[in-house]
Amino acid sequence: MPWIDACSTDDIDEEDLIRWDHAGQTFAIYHSPDGAFFATAGLCTHENVHLCDGLVMGNLIECPKHNGQFDYRTGEAMRAPVCVNLRTFPVKVEGDRVFVEVA
């Protein structure tokens, strides 16, 4: 699977996320409070709302529309109305660049 250069580490504040679109797919890339980076599918599994407008709280991302929550490290659905887990993607950091392994 190809590793794609997605963004700079400075593009995302700690405890925040950005939207990243690639090859017709939309992703969310997270910068956790402890400095790690993660990537998930960009749309909520409940009603396809972009997660990039949501709120990162610790290791959770809250959907901006219905307040459903996922653990963005594992994709696990943590709070209704989301029931279906979020797809996650491997991330690596080289220098100041964040790479996502896109399936």
Partner: peptide, 10 residues
């Protein structure tokens, strides 16, 4: 009602 309200917002 948690779900009906989700629909109300969508």
């Amino acid at each position: 009602w948690r779900w009906s309200h989700a629909r109300h917002h969508s």
